[in-house]
Computed example of a mutant assay.
Amino acid sequence: MQSVASPIAAQPRRLTLWLALASVYILWGSTYLFIHFMTEQMPPLYMASMRFLVAGTLLYTYARVTGTPRPTLNQIRSAGAVGILLLGIANGCLTIAIQHIPTGMAALIAGTLPVFLLSLNWVSFGKTRPSNLALAGLLLGFVGVYFLIKPDKLQGGSADHNLIGAGLIMIGNLAWAMGTLMSPRLNLPSPFMSSGIQMLAGAAALLTVSLLTEPVTLFSIVDAPTKAIGSLWYLVIFGSIIGFSSYAWLARNAPPTLLSTYAYVNPVVAMLLGTLFAGEILTSQSLIGAGIVVAGVVLITLGRK
C-alpha cells in the first residue's frame, strides 16, 4: 500500500519549494541590473571573469570540504567545455550586450532561450519535432524580438546599438542551448563540483579574452570602485551561489513546467528593477514586444511534449 505524506511533513517541503522558486525568480531577475552596476566603470569581460573566478573557487572548495571526490580528467574536460559555452560565451556576450541595450531589454531577449533549445533539439540533438503549440510559441518569440530591436522602440537607442546588443545575446543563447543539451550526454561530476569547474573554466576563458582586448591587467580589480565591487559580491553570493543552489534543488524536486516559468518571470523582474534603479524607460510598443516574447515562451513551455 502506497504511503501518503502527512500534511505536517508536506508543509516544510512546500515552503522550501516556494522559497526556492522565489529565489530563482527574484535573484536571477536582479542579476541583469547588478551586471550593469558592476560594469558601469569597469571593463565587462574582466569583471565577469572575476565574478566566476570567486564563485567557482568557493563552490569547488565547498564540494571538496564536504567530501565530494576529486573529479577525473575526463570530468574536468567535460565540465570545462560546458562552462566555456554557458559562462564564457553566453554570459560574456550578455555582459557586453548590457553595454549597448537596457537591462530589461537584455533580459527579455535572453528570455527567448527556450526558442533556441527547441530549435537546436529539433535540428540537431534530439531530432524531435516540437508540438504545434510550441512551434507557434517559437514564431511568436522571434516576432517579439523583432519589435524589441526596432530602432524606434528604445528611448535614446540607435539601430546599431539595438542590433549589436540583440545579436550578442542571441549568440549567447545559442551557446547556452548547446551547453544545456550537451550536459546530459557528458560525464560530469556531482552538481556543486561540476558548477565550480564550469565557473572556473568560464572565468579562465573570459579573463584570457579580457587581457587580450580590454585595458586591464591581472590585478585591475584593486582599482574597481566600491559600487562595482559590491555588485560583484552580490552576483557571486546571490546570483551564482544561492541562485544556482535554488535552481539545482528545483531541478530535482519541482515539475519541469513549474521550473521553466523562471524564463518569463526573470525579464519582468529585470524590467521593473531597471526602471526603478537604472532610469531605463520603455515605450508602449516596447512593452508590446515584451508581451509577445513572454507569450511565445509560455506557449513553448505549455507545448513541450
Score class of each variant (00 low, 15 high):
A9P: 00
R14Q: 06
R14M: 08
L15V: 14
T16S: 14
W18T: 11
A20N: 10
A20S: 05
L21K: 08
L33W: 11
M38E: 13
P44M: 09
L45K: 06
Y46R: 12
S49A: 14
R51I: 13
F52P: 12
F52R: 03
L58Q: 07
T68V: 04
P71E: 02
P71M: 07
S78A: 14
G80I: 09
V82R: 05
G83A: 04
I84E: 09
C93D: 09
L94I: 11
I96Y: 09
I96T: 08
Q99H: 15
I109C: 04
G111P: 08
L113C: 07
L120T: 05
N121Q: 10
W122F: 03
F125P: 12
K127I: 13
P130W: 07
S131R: 10
L133Y: 10
G137K: 04
L139Y: 13
G141F: 06
F142I: 12
V143M: 07
Y146M: 12
L148P: 02
I149V: 15
K150V: 13
P151L: 15
K153Y: 15
G156M: 02
N162G: 02
I164D: 02
L168S: 09
I169Q: 05
G172L: 15
A175F: 08
P184E: 05
P184M: 15
P191C: 01
M193R: 08
S194W: 03
S194R: 11
I197W: 00
A201S: 05
A203S: 09
L206C: 10
L207E: 00
T213S: 03
T217I: 06
V222F: 15
D223E: 05
A224H: 12
A224C: 11
P225F: 01
T226S: 14
S231K: 06
L232I: 00
L235S: 01
F238I: 13
I241E: 01
I241C: 01
A248Q: 01
A251Y: 04
L259I: 03
Y262D: 04
V265S: 01
V268R: 05
L276M: 13
L282W: 05
T283S: 04
S284H: 12
G291L: 10
V294Y: 04
V297A: 02
I300Q: 00
T301A: 05
L302P: 05
L302Q: 12
